[in-house]
Amino acid sequence: MNSIVLKISNCYKSFCKSSNTVEVLKGVELTIKQGETVMLLGPSGSGKSTVLHVVAGLTPIDKGTIEVCGVNISECTEKQMLRIRRENIGFIFQDFRLLKGLTALENVMVPLFTVGKKYIEAESRSKNLLKMLELDHRMYHYPKHLSGGELQRLGIARALANSPQIILADEPTGNLDQKLAHGITKMLVSLPNKTDTSILMVTHNQQLTQYASRCVELVDGCLKARESCIY
């Protein structure tokens, strides 16, 4: 039986802007098992990205619990959170958010350095990842010289660097055309060792739901399961 990688229970999050308080998450419940690919749908501004940020510990929650790999991150110190983020979480952004001053290879090596990997070890692991994602010919190129598809594959390679338990993907295909979006998503869900890694992916693209194990929709601050993921 697959173990639980992520468990969100009764999670609340609101944002205060001047005198207005906007409640974004109102009792979110979500459980993701090892190897599952869960697609998170919802209208713009519904709080999909907020879910990812609270899971990554980038934003604190107001109420509830979030367990990542069995650890309640809402009770973690910043140091413990950093460790969880380094070792268990991979993050993919819609707009890639790669370091422009580093080559493709160096971008993938950064997360490996955060866990104390030596240069040679980090270089070897990064090269393998780039090869796996068919970016070996772009290894020493800077992000500005890469195409949209290549940038997102590089983002995926970076997210995979530390073999995370869960990948949080924030609309990773939002900036790509349909063909590329399908290619990237397919690549993401069919990665080697995929059975070990879970994915929580935010998307607007209904067509991509075909690649998910299951889909959930964020409506009025609460997550609801979608009966069918196939468009």
Partner: peptide, 16 residues
């Protein structure tokens, strides 16, 4: 230290 060197390189290339 390798991380810090990489960060500095990144910053200098981007923000020189």
């Amino acid at each position: 230290m390798r991380l810090v060197i990489t960060l500095i390189k990144s910053s200098l290339v981007t923000d020189h």
